[in-house]
């Protein structure tokens, strides 16, 4: 298992594509109130890795994506750092740097609704050519060819290049948007709910293509509420609850026999129709009025006195009473429980 919080010292030579440390976002509301949308997120992404960030709507996962793209609204405040491989801090960079050197070039965005992401009044070809010109500074004569190549990389059929977005099916629009995201050859691909509203075949097709594009040279961060899509694409799953990443887990373990260790992640998995189809009781807390301690405690069957204190995010898990295959020796002592599992 890779560990996000502590990497070996020689990591400096092969810096990860994205290193997020203590990323927090809060929104300033009227009357000095704050809504803490993301709290203290830590994770790293190496080239070739595909991380799926899953959670309920309103858990803060889209805010995290917006923070990484510098697209937060004005009343947002950020803390922590999100370092790209070359040392750019996505949270500290100003708008000019983000627009000129980051978006498209270092971070490619695969949007939520491709049809809305494409300009409706221009053909796919003209949008690809514009992006090629802007990002690659391709000489005029070569633009047309470069745009066609870009379309080819995303398997967008060349005979559809002169169509307008509304003339494309959902799948082709998705490929067109992916082609645009890939042009800058960004080392980090960020997909924000790329499969919402698509039917199952198209979901599988879309995530397979995303996996193909990630290959071994790029890293992919996919934000989704669709666990099936996450299972198909990701090698690691990060579960977010009430603004915090509560567990990061290898996808094989997460969906496999071992299962996730955090009770929330377990509940989410068990809610799938393929499994128990049982909802987690209650609803997530408001991000504007988070309880003291573990935010999941109120809905958690394993909660105890210890859960009044926020569990630290250690060993890729933030829970006082993680679920493990064998009964924990003493649920009040997380270290022992962990040790039992390590043994």
């Amino acid at each position: 298992m890779t560990d996000a919080a502590t990497r070996p010292a020689d990591a400096a030579t092969t810096a990860p594509v994205l290193d997020v440390r203590g990323l927090s976002v809060r929104f300033r509301m009227r009357g000095e109130r704050y809504v803490r949308a993301v709290t203290d997120a830590h994770f790293t992404l190496e080239a070739g890795q595909r991380l799926a960030l899953v959670g309920e709507s309103g858990c803060g996962k889209s805010v995290l994506a917006s923070a990484l793209l510098g697209l937060l609204p004005e009343n947002a405040e950020t803390a922590g750092s999100a370092l790209l491989g070359d040392g750019t801090d996505l949270l500290a960079a100003d708008e000019r740097t983000l627009a000129r050197t980051v978006r498209g070039r270092k971070v490619g965005l695969v949007p939520q609704s491709p049809a809305a992401h494409l300009t409706p009044v221009r053909t796919i070809r003209s949008q690809l050519e514009e992006t090629v010109r802007e990002l690659l500074r391709t000489p005029r004569a070569a633009v047309r060819k470069a745009a066609e190549e870009a379309a080819g990389r995303a398997s967008f059929p060349a005979d559809h290049l002169d169509r307008y977005p509304h003339e494309l099916s959902g799948g082709l629009a998705q490929r067109a948007a992916t082609a645009l995201a890939l042009i800058g050859d960004a080392p980090l691909l960020l997909a924000d709910e790329p499969t919402t509203g698509l039917d199952r075949d198209l979901v599988e097709h879309t995530v397979d293509e995303l996996a193909r594009h990630t290959g071994s040279s790029r890293a992919l961060l996919m934000i989704t509420h669709d666990l099936a899509a996450a299972e198909r694409i990701a090698d690691r799953i990060a579960v977010m609850y009430a603004g915090r990443i509560v567990e990061i887990c290898d996808a094989e373990d997460f969906f496999g026999a071992r299962g996730p260790r955090h009770p929330y992640a377990r509940g989410l998995l068990n809610a799938l129709p393929e499994r128990e189809f049982a909802a987690i009781p209650g609803m997530p807390p408001e991000l504007g009025a988070l309880p003291e301690g573990c935010a999941f405690a109120a809905r958690c069957g394993r909660a105890s006195e210890a859960c009044r204190v926020q569990p630290p995010f250690a060993d890729l898990l933030a829970c006082h009473h993680p679920v493990s295959d064998r009964p924990a020796a003493d649920p009040a002592d997380p270290a022992e429980a962990l040790e039992a599992e390590h043994a």
């Binding site: 509420h225 998995l269 909802a279 987690i280």
Partner: peptide
């Protein structure tokens, strides 16, 4: 548009 838990609920 919903996550697995809300769907089940």
């Amino acid at each position: 548009m919903l996550d697995a838990s809300t769907t089940a609920a």
